[in-house]
């Protein structure tokens, strides 16, 4: 995994965002950086927990009962909805159960919904990101994918895959992410689940220079790609 503490000052900058993060007042790149800090730094995670608790009280302050019919609708939907498996420590230990961006970390689970925002043009985003002087997240590469765009970003040593305007896979199929190294052997990197055409996935362990590839696979994923490669993002 990427080295930590290589930029102490940068870490401080991220730490300054903990309160904004608790209020969801950060953009997706900042969110990824904060959540990485929270995984690595228990003290920061403790501080964030206090902020989150404070923020959630602001929700309590405006509590309003939903209409009773909603309860029945929710219970009916729950009765036919499967729950996720508990988190496991790293994606590679349980590849079949993971999707990029959700791998073992509940904290990123809703990022997918956020990318509708972020990717109002990931190239545009890349420009924004590249323009930042501090944490130096950068757009590594971008390419077309499923009527939309996929991009690979480096955020402070983490790699994040983003999609925009992406068509959902057919029923019973999933988009699976692979890395292709020099040896050309595809390594499964998790799944992408577009919501409202967007997705965000975090790659835990990206190899520099690898090529990102996306295929469409049967639900549950495959050990080896079984479809044509839909997109490659050379890095």
């Amino acid at each position: 995994m990427a080295a930590t503490d290589h930029r102490t000052g940068d870490r401080e900058d991220v730490r300054d965002l903990l309160a904004a993060h608790a209020l969801d007042a950060v953009d997706d790149v900042e969110r990824a950086r904060v959540e990485r800090l929270l995984r690595e730094d228990p003290e920061a995670a403790g501080e964030a927990a206090g902020y989150a608790e404070a923020a959630s009280r602001m929700a309590v302050a405006v509590a309003a009962s939903p209409p009773p019919r909603l309860r029945a609708a929710v219970l009916a939907e729950v009765a036919r909805t499967r729950q996720v498996a508990p988190a496991s420590p790293t994606r590679r230990e349980a590849p079949a159960d993971h999707r990029a961006g959700r791998g073992g970390r509940g904290a990123v689970r809703l990022l997918a919904a956020a990318c509708g925002v972020l990717l109002a043009g990931c190239v545009g985003l890349g420009a924004v990101v590249l323009g930042q002087d501090d944490g130096a997240p950068s757009l590594v590469a971008a390419g077309g994918f499923a009527d939309g765009t996929a991009a690979l970003l480096e955020v402070d040593g983490d790699y994040v895959v983003l999609g925009q305007g992406v068509a959902a896979p057919p029923a019973g199929r999933v988009y699976q992410l692979w890395s292709l190294g020099d040896d050309g052997v595809p390594v499964p990197e998790g799944f992408l689940e577009p919501e409202d055409g967007g997705f965000v996935g975090q790659l835990d362990d990206w190899r520099d220079g690898a090529v990102l590839a996306i295929t469409e696979e049967p639900a549950g994923g495959s050990e080896q790609p079984t479809s044509d490669i839909l997109a490659t993002v050379p890095t």
């Binding site: 927990a49 729950q83 996720v84 904290a107 809703l110």
Partner: peptide
Amino acid sequence: VEVWKQAPRYDAARG
């Protein structure tokens, strides 16, 4: 519904 789905991932240590 998301709360239902994600409940197994809730980690009390985080809040």
